[in-house]
């Protein structure tokens, strides 16, 4: 009796999970499959795999647009911003976690404001500041904005983590004649690696996928990031179905693959990173 009940419970569990998997995966499957179909195929056979796989949607899209540049721009912006976030927030967190001085708590809470108040709300003045620095229509403007966007949460995660590193380690190094800077570089930084990974992971998606700031700060064709290019190409090809789907697939698949490869670290990093919020 117990056994039949178990089997029923188990199979309904799996049925539920599979239905949900379908709801999650099918639109993505559809996007990829449609990008590989001919226009006729898209209308006569909209649901399944292509009746024959064709790639000329992609070749047409790649021929007229500069995906090499769009990907390059997105890479430059994402990697530089994350590198800067890691450097700035680990330096600041070290001092906030290990040194006692009058404004310590105050500065820490000052940084936390940035977690709660989205940088978007300062957009108008950011445009003015960026323009004043002659960085309008320049990738550096995006790098600065994303760095500032990531630093508060970075400091929050890293300060917590550095506080847990036992004081004895630093003290032992100090007795051996290690300077304050040396302790940071040789003791703290190597131990900080998992936390740094978490900070990097928390920032990948919001930076890579951001559309708001490129839309406002970038004009030139050769400086477009993937989301901005996607939006413009979507408008251009609106009636050419196969090509539109090729544009959407090109924008998504690289990150999906990247995520699937490191999904374990990805999910762990996100839970560690966001959990502390």
């Amino acid at each position: 009796m117990q056994k039949t009940k178990n089997i029923v419970a188990r199979s309904s569990l799996y049925t539920f999970m599979l239905i949900f998997t379908g709801v999650v995966c099918y639109p993505i499957f559809l996007m990829i499959a449609t990008s590989l179909k001919s226009n006729k195929d898209i209308f006569t056979n909209p649901y399944g795999l292509p009746s024959n796989f064709i790639f000329n949607n992609y070749s047409k899209v790649f021929l007229v647009s500069r995906y090499d540049l769009y990907f390059r721009n997105s890479f430059i912006v994402t990697l530089s911003s994350i590198a800067l976030i890691l450097v700035l927030s680990s330096l600041a967190s070290y001092v906030l976690a290990k040194y006692k001085f009058a404004a310590n708590r105050l500065i820490y809470f000052y940084f936390l404001i940035g977690i709660m108040i989205p940088i978007k709300l300062g957009t108008i003045n950011i445009v003015q500041i960026i323009n004043g620095l002659h960085l309008f229509d320049n990738l550096l403007s995006l790098i600065i904005v994303y760095t500032v966007m990531g630093v508060p949460l970075g400091i929050f995660i890293l300060t917590d983590f550095i506080k847990m590193i036992p004081e004895e380690l630093s003290n032992a190094a100090r007795i051996d004649g290690c300077s304050d800077y040396g302790i940071f570089l040789k003791i703290i930084l190597p131990l900080l690696r998992p936390a740094l990974a978490a900070v990097a992971i928390v920032n990948i998606l919001p930076i890579w996928n951001d559309f708001w700031f490129p839309l406002i700060l970038i004009r030139s064709e050769h400086l477009k990031t993937i989301p901005l290019a996607t939006s413009i190409l979507y408008g251009q090809y609106e009636t050419q179905w196969g090509m539109v789907f090729a544009v959407l697939t090109t924008a998504s698949v690289p990150l999906i693959i990247f995520y699937l490869i490191i999904s374990k670290q990805f999910i762990r990093g996100l839970s560690e990173g966001a959990f502390k919020g």
Binding site: L91, I119, V148, P152
Partner: peptide, 26 residues
């Protein structure tokens, strides 16, 4: 100590300049 200033200044300046100030200015 100098290290406090050196390590805090970059994050503090950039964060104030491009997040706190723009929000207040807006």
């Amino acid at each position: 100590k100098p290290i406090i200033i050196f390590f805090l200044a970059p994050a503090l300046i950039l964060y104030s300049w491009f997040l706190i100030v723009p929000i207040l200015n807006s």
